[in-house]
Design a protein around this nucleic acid. Structure first.
Lengths: 328, 328
DNA sequence: CTGAAAGCGCTTACAG
DNA sequence: CTGAAAGCGCTTACAG
C-alpha cells in the first residue's frame, strides 16, 4: 500500500480513507495521510475493500425496460438520493425480460451493497433470494417480499374514468399491455371499475392487449377500430402513452378526428405527450420521485437503519390535454 | 470453501470451476467436483476471484444517453457478443453527460474486465486512462485513443443529399444537435458538402441546433419556418429521427403538407420512423451490429488476442419513405 | 492513539 | 495428477 509512505501503518490509512478517524487517529496523522492520498492520487481498491468488508459499493438496478424516457427519470432520481459513495450500475437483460436465475447468481457474487428492482414479477423475486438489502419499485402486490415504493395508479385511473364520464362518453375501449406486470392489471381494473360505476360500458371484446410499442399498438387499433366504431365507441384508454401514440397516429391515418370523434388517453405522461398535437391526456406518474424515494429507502437499509415506512405509495394525477378536450 | 467436501483440495475445485482442467485433473475428480458444485449450488465468489486474478468479470458500458431505442439495440448487440461469462453493467450519468473523473476512478477501482464507451468526447477519454481493455463506439476521429467501431454516417448523409437533389430540391435547411459529439459534425459536414456539390443551397442561416428532443426541435422549427418558407426551402434534414418527429409534428400544426410542400428526413432509422405517417426517410444506422462488433473486439482484447482491425467502420444506408416521396 | 496480525474467498506457481 | 502455501488489497478486532 503505497500511501503507507505517509509514515504511518496501512491500518491508519484505511481508517482515514474510510472516515473512521473519530477519536482513533491523531489530527496530525489524519492530515499527513490526507496529503499523501491527494499527492499519490490514491483510490481505495474496490475489490480488496469489498472482500475485507464482505460487501461492495455497487448498487445494482434491475429493470426490464431501459429504453423509455420514463425510466431515465427514475434513474436520475435514484442517482440523486444514492449519492456518490455508491456506484449505480444497471443490469440489462433483453428488452422486457428479467435476468435469469444464473445471471442473478453471478450478479449476487459481486456482493452488491444493495439491489433495486423495477416492476418485477413474483418468479424473479423468488430466484433472487437476495442477501443484500433490496427495495422494489413499482411492484404493487409484492410488498410482502421486500420494502417497496409504488405508484398509486389506481386513483389516476379512476380520475380518468370520471373525466371521460363527465365529458359524456358512454362506450369506451381499452388497450392493455401484454406484459404480466402487476401495475398494468391495476391500471386496467381501476379504470374499468370506475368506468362501470359511472355508466361507461367497456365490453370484454373491447379490451385488447399489445406490446408497449407505437407500431404494434397502431396496427392493433387499426384492426379493432371498425368494430368499435360500429359499437359507437368514443373513447380509447391505453395502458401507456407509447401505445396511445400509436392509436393517435393510426386514427389520423383513418381520418378519425381527435377528440371530436374519438378521445384518447394514456398513462405515464411522457415528455412527448405535452408537445404532441393534440396533446395527450395522461395519468401523470412521478418517475423521478419514484427513483428518489426508492434510493432513499435502500440507502437507509444499507446503512443499517430501520425503515419507518416499508411500503410507500406515490400519488398519480390526471393531466388533461387536447386529446380528450371537452365539448365532444 | 464448502465444495472442498468433494474430497479434494480447494485448488482442484478452483481448477474445475475455471475450466482449466486440461491435463491437470483426473476425470474422476473432475466429475466428483462437478457433482458437488451442482449439489451445493456453489457459485464462485466474484470478489475473491477478482482479487486473486487482478480483474473482475464485469464489463462496464459507459454511455451518455440511455433512454433511446437506438441505444437499446446497441446494448442487445453487446450482450450477444459478450456472452454470459461477462456481466454487462451500464454506468449511468445524467442524461447527455459523462461520468466525472472521480466517478471514473471509482469505477476503475472495481477492476472491470473491459470498458465500452459510446460517443465519448476527447476530454472524457483523457480522464479515463484505463488500464483495462477499452473499445470505443461511435467515436469518429478518436481512433488514436483506442480501438473503435464507427458508423459511416458520411456515406448515408451523401446518399440523402443525392436523393433530395434528384427529387428536385434546391433550397434546404438543417437541424443539428447541440451536443458536441463528433458524429453529428460528420453528419452535417458530409450532407452540406454533397448538397452543395449537387446544387442544393443550405445557407448558414438555415442551420439551427437543438437538443435531441421532440419538443425542442418542434419549437425551434416553428420559429425558423416562416423565414425558411420565404426563402423557398422545400427540404429539412435533421441530425436525428427524434428531431425530425418534432419537425413533422410542428409542420402538421402549421398545415404544411409533407412531402408535397416540405420533405423531411433524419438519421438513425428508429422503429417509429417506419410506422409514422408519413413514414420518415432516414439514414439507417446499424445499432445492433455496432454493439455486436464492439463486444467482439473487446472480447478479443480481454482474452489477450490481437485485433486484426483496430478500427472498424459499419455502413449506413438511406431508407426512403413517404416524408420525402418523389413527385413533389 | 497506533501498528502487527489475521482474515475476507479465491487462484496460481510450486513441490511432490 | 494433487495439495500446501503464498498472495491478491484491503479492514478490523486486538495488544500495546
Amino acid at each position: 500500500m503505497v500511501a503507507a509512505r505517509a509514515g504511518v501503518s496501512t491500518a491508519t490509512v484505511s481508517l482515514v480513507a474510510n472516515g473512521k478517524t473519530a477519536g482513533r487517529v491523531s489530527e496530525d496523522n489524519v492530515s499527513r495521510v490526507r496529503e499523501a492520498i491527494a499527492e499519490l492520487g490514491y483510490v481505495v481498491d474496490g475489490i480488496g475493500s469489498s472482500l475485507a468488508k464482505g460487501v461492495s459499493s455497487v448498487v445494482v438496478l434491475v429493470a426490464p425496460d431501459i429504453s423509455n424516457p420514463f425510466f431515465a427519470k427514475v434513474i436520475a432520481g435514484v442517482r440523486d438520493s444514492l449519492g456518490p459513495q455508491y456506484q449505480l450500475l444497471l443490469s440489462v437483460a433483453d428488452a422486457g425480460e428479467f435476468p435469469e436465475a444464473d445471471d442473478v447468481r453471478r450478479l449476487m457474487s459481486l456482493r452488491p451493497a444493495g439491489l433495486l428492482v423495477d416492476a418485477p414479477n413474483a418468479g424473479f423475486l423468488e430466484d433472487l433470494a437476495s442477501p443484500s438489502p433490496l427495495v422494489l419499485l413499482d411492484a404493487p402486490g409484492l410488498e410482502a417480499h421486500a420494502p417497496s415504493v409504488n405508484l398509486d395508479v389506481a386513483s389516476g385511473a379512476r380520475e380518468l374514468a370520471a373525466h371521460l364520464a363527465d365529458a359524456g362518453h358512454r362506450q369506451a375501449a381499452y388497450v392493455d399491455s401484454v406484459t404480466g406486470t402487476e401495475t398494468f392489471a391495476l391500471r386496467r381494473e381501476a379504470f374499468l371499475a370506475e368506468a362501470a360505476a359511472r355508466g361507461i360500458t367497456v365490453g370484454a371484446d373491447r379490451i385488447i392487449s399489445t406490446t408497449v410499442d407505437v407500431g404494434t399498438a397502431a396496427s392493433a387499433f387499426a384492426g379493432a377500430w371498425p368494430a368499435w366504431q360500429r359499437q359507437e365507441v368514443t373513447a380509447v384508454v391505453c395502458s401507456t402513452d407509447t401505445q396511445a401514440y400509436g392509436v393517435l397516429q393510426e386514427a389520423r391515418v383513418a381520418g378519425v378526428r381527435i377528440p371530436a370523434e374519438l378521445a384518447v388517453a394514456g398513462f405515464d405522461d411522457l415528455p412527448y405527450s405535452a408537445t404532441s398535437n393534440p396533446g395527450l391526456t395522461s395519468v401523470h406518474l412521478p418517475a423521478a420521485a419514484l427513483g428518489q424515494k426508492a434510493g432513499e429507502q435502500l440507502r437507509r437499509l444499507m446503512e443499517g437503519q430501520p425503515l419507518e415506512m416499508p411500503a410507500v405509495t406515490l400519488e398519480s394525477t390526471l393531466v388533461v390535454r387536447g386529446s380528450t378536450a371537452a365539448g365532444s
